[in-house]
Amino acid sequence: MKFQEVDITKSSGQKMRFSIQKLRKSLHRTGADEQTISDIVNKVQEELYEGISTQEIYNRAYALLKKEKSYLASKYKLKKAIYELGPTGFPFELFISKVLEYSGYTTEVGKIIQGKCVSHEVDVLAYKNNQAVMIECKFHGEQGLNSNVKVPLYIHSRFLDIEKQWNSSKRKIVLTQGWVVTNTRFTENAIQYGECAGLYLLSWDYPENDGLKDRIDRLGLYPITVSNLLTKREKDFLLSRKIVLYRELIKDAFFLDHLGISETRKNRILNEIKEVCNF
Score class of each variant (00 low, 15 high):
T54N: 06
N59R: 15
P91Y: 09
V118S: 14
L85V: 09
L64N: 02
S38F: 01
A73C: 11
V99P: 06
Q114A: 09
F95K: 07
K116Y: 13
Y83T: 07
Y83C: 10
G115A: 10
G115Y: 08
I40T: 01
F139L: 13
F92L: 14
Y58K: 05
K43N: 12
K116F: 13
L64D: 11
G51Y: 02
G86V: 04
E47L: 05
A132W: 06
Y83G: 08
S53D: 10
E121S: 12
E93H: 04
E142A: 09
T106D: 08
L125Q: 06
E101R: 02
Y127E: 14
Q45H: 09
F92G: 05
L85A: 13
F139W: 11
A63I: 08
P87L: 04
K98H: 04
K43I: 12
E136R: 00
S53H: 08
S119V: 07
S53E: 14
T36E: 05
S38G: 04
S38Y: 01
D33L: 12
Q35L: 08
F90I: 10
K79E: 13
A132N: 03
I40M: 03
S38C: 06
T106V: 06
E50W: 00
S74C: 07
Q45D: 09
C117A: 14
L48I: 01
T106F: 04
E47A: 03
V118R: 13
E84Q: 06
Y102L: 15
K67C: 12
L48M: 03
Y83E: 12
I112P: 06
K75W: 06
E47K: 03
K67P: 07
T88E: 08
S70P: 09
A73D: 08
T107H: 02
E47S: 06
E47P: 00
I37C: 05
N129C: 12
A73F: 05
I82M: 13
G141C: 01
P87Y: 00
I40E: 04
G51V: 08
L78C: 11
K80N: 12
L64K: 02
K66P: 04
M134L: 15
K67T: 13
I112E: 14
T88C: 01
T54Y: 04
L94D: 10
M134H: 09
I113A: 11
I82A: 05
V44F: 03
K98R: 10
A73M: 09
V122N: 04
E101F: 03
F90K: 12
E47H: 00
S70W: 03
N129F: 09
K79R: 10
E93K: 00
Q131E: 15
L78R: 02
N59A: 15
E34F: 03
N129L: 14
F90R: 08
K80Q: 14
A132Q: 11
M134E: 14
A81V: 05
S38M: 08
G51A: 10
Y102G: 11
L94W: 05
N130I: 00
Y76A: 06
N129E: 15
C137T: 10
I40H: 00
L64I: 10
K66I: 09
V44L: 02
A73T: 03
E121Y: 06
K67A: 15
L48C: 04
T54G: 07
Q114L: 11
Q55E: 15
Y62M: 12
N42F: 13
I37K: 01
Y49D: 07
S119R: 00
S97N: 02
L48N: 02
E50G: 00
A63T: 07
I57F: 02
